[in-house]
Write a protein that binds this DNA or RNA. Sequence first.
RNA 1: GCGGGCGUAGCUCAGUGGUAGAGCGUCACGUUGCCAACGUGAAUGUCGUGAGUUCAAGUCUCAUCGCCCGCUCCA
Length: 501
Amino acid sequence: MADNSNELMDKLVALCKRRGFIFQSSEIYGGINGFWDYGPLGVELKRNIKDHWWNTVVRQRDDMVGVDCSIIMNPRVWEASGHVTNFNDPLVDCKGCKARYRADKVFTVEVKDGENMLLLAGVDADNADQAKAAATEKANSKTRRRLEEKGDSLAWNMFRADQAQGQTSRCPNCGQELTDARKFNMMFKTFVGAMEDSSAVAYLRPETAQGIFANYKNVLDTSRIKVPFGIAQVGKSFRNEINPRNYTFRSREFEQMEIEFFCHPKEADKWYEYWRDARYKWYVDLGLKSSKLHLRNHEKEELAHYARACADVEYEFPFGTSELEGIANRTDFDLTQHQKFSGRDMTYFDDETKEKFIPYVIEPSGGCDRATLAFLCEAYTEDQAPDEKGVMQTRVVMKFHPALAPIKVAVFPLVKKEGMPEIAQKIHQACKQANLVSFYDEKGAVGRRYRRQDEAGTPFCVTVDGQTLADQSVTVRERDSLKQERIPADKVVQYVQERIR
RNA sequence: GCGGGCGUAGCUCAGUGGUAGAGCGUCACGUUGCCAACGUGAAUGUCGUGAGUUCAAGUCUCAUCGCCCGCUCCA
């Protein structure tokens, strides 16, 4: 990674702290790894992102409804979803080179010719056949020739690191010994009820999706909605990530924006493509316009066993390209699992076609904190602007889409006298009454006040000046172009409202 | 969990075993006439924490906590 990328991230992190976007959680106690707080500007930014998402995918549509489910659910939910079994991946470490592997992806291959150890190697592989091929590939040419000549008459012993049963696993990288497989629990565990009783074990949800699946029948029975339709949810989820990293990108407590869209199996491909493209466009429309945004279709080998298709919306962060949102065709896997585990009927009956089926599910699942971070990275800009003497100075400006900007408008008296503060206050209060986040500032030189708003990403600054006293007009200064225009003071609210959509 | 780096003011960082510093920011007062103006003044520090060595530790040693980077997992 280039140094200037790290530099950009450092500058952004410093700005987020300095201006009150993001603080480290429990900072006064030294912080806690993987948890973050949003400050006064950050909470507005994140809320705007969530609101815009909710408006787009729920309120502006006829085929979508929302839910807000509890974070702690019946633990059986996580058995049905596969989280209890699948996400307790055992891991192994190399005692020599310190590499870490998923134990079910590492095979140790021993080949004996009588008493002679012909080959002893660790390999990355999904199954025994792959392991055999990989080990053969790895052997030197002389050994390989013997393997080919003698073939199955040799004694092959292959075992997965999580099924070693006392045998010593070998590192695929350096060949040295691996530790025994150790379990890592991805879910946060807790106890329901005041007594810490093992029968009361519960988990903080690792995704919001299961609350939607668990309520699929409730929503169908109460909202008069028909397939195809979707349920949306925004909420916190929790994962014991092995290693939180990259600022807020990989956190242990994070917020998701998830949709489960239920449709006829025959229409699943169509809806998958629809949502994939719609979700990508949402990010573009909100300002991730640059070449840093990508839509990447997963290769077949990448797909989870239940997914028929999957695509990621990815963003080129300074620390690397990473996923903001995944859109997957999850087939009828989840509803079928819940039907099996709960014993409840999850089929849908179509009155028109008289057909009964378990709907397929298209899941656009976005990381809200990740989106927030991407919008922050995209917004951070340094440009050149003239100072009072006309000398060009570096200006730091957060070029948020106006709809996302934490502060929509700042109102200043040019100077703190001649009745200008009073007029400016009136305009400020009018903006607040219209639910526009407005900031009033009368201190210091107006140039400094403009620049301060640039760092907060405020799209418009309104200034009351001498002319206002004569004709009730004010100047509006636009953040990115620095251009000013005069408008009537009583049109400020309307002016801003029209430009922040 | 392992390896490497780091921890001094709100931010960015100097600091040679001997009085705790700078720039920026913040606040107050004055000034102000549209892009980080100027003047005067002020506040802000358990030097991450705890031990140890020393006459004396921000500085040396050990431990510990936290952060950053790499490996593994993931939205």
